[in-house]
Nucleic acid binder design. Structure first.
Lengths: 145, 145
DNA sequence: CTTCGTGCAAAGTTTTTGCATATGA
DNA sequence: TCATATGCAAAAACTTTGCACGAAG
């Protein structure tokens, strides 16, 4: 895989016949700054609108879909929304049911082999989502922020 | 684990201090009939309303939450909705992006060990979601039903 | 110049909430 | 009796759609 950089995203969009627009460049800038990390369409919107004030959530959804179709970001659903991430290494996403924070957790290689040996199924995407209490929230009472 | 039966769900609700209502019994009847299987709140609603015509989706959500809190069903999010299932064995859920069908897929025990050895995290729930093309849809053109 | 993307408004889905009434334990 | 559940309506949260205009290639 190419090193993460804005060019990586731009090239991937071009290869998939997407046009390069100022709005897309701003979303790329945001996404690239969040490596590794997890973000929602709303997160991207709130950040990018500071530079592109006329942009709308619908356009953010469009752009994130393009970046995903170009193979540069992954998505998974949790807590009622779609989360995006740039981490292409196979991993789990641990979601703390107390504070809501999402943390990447490592997974052994054996599982990857398992998943590639499913008779009859062509696996294109895998998401492993764990929930529970994170280290910081263990023994601490509080509400999700 | 107890054998799956309506009593299993009723007992679990009682142990968690939930009341047994006719509406809950009908949802239990539905859930128990879908073992193994995957269903949404809407699926339950459409079935149960035939016997309990005044029931509403809000009540279905309430009951499914109670059954989940009582530890009898699991849930995961995919395709924009929450799916419920009774399968308590650790497994993956393969979602065909062509026909939408969800299929349980077996996972080796190694992963379970991995997931139980996450330093600092208390794992309460795990969902492994795979997407791609199922056997039936491989090589077949069509739209999701 | 032609196709694709953006901005806007509106609608579609799924899920939650508040409250009065009804009911299980 | 009394805490909890139900039914209803309304709202909230997230995502998609249609269309006219604008911009990239």
């Amino acid at each position: 895989m190419l090193e993460m950089s804005k060019e990586y995203y731009v090239n991937a969009l071009r290869e998939s016949k997407f046009k390069i627009t100022p709005q897309r460049l701003q979303v790329i800038k945001y996404v690239n700054s969040k490596t590794p990390g997890h973000f929602t369409a709303e997160d991207v919107y709130q950040s990018v609108r500071k530079i592109e004030p006329t942009i709308t959530l619908a356009t953010i959804y469009n752009i994130l879909k393009a970046l995903r179709d170009a193979g540069t970001i992954n998505s998974f659903e949790a807590n009622g929304t779609t989360w995006f991430e740039t981490n292409h290494e196979f991993h789990g996403n641990f979601i703390c049911s107390n504070c809501g924070k999402i943390t990447d957790v490592p997974i052994s290689n054996e599982l990857i082999n398992d998943l590639n040996s499913l008779d009859g199924f062509t696996v294109e995407n895998v998401s492993l989502i764990l929930s529970g209490t994170c280290e910081k929230c263990s023994g601490v009472k509080g509400k999700q922020s």
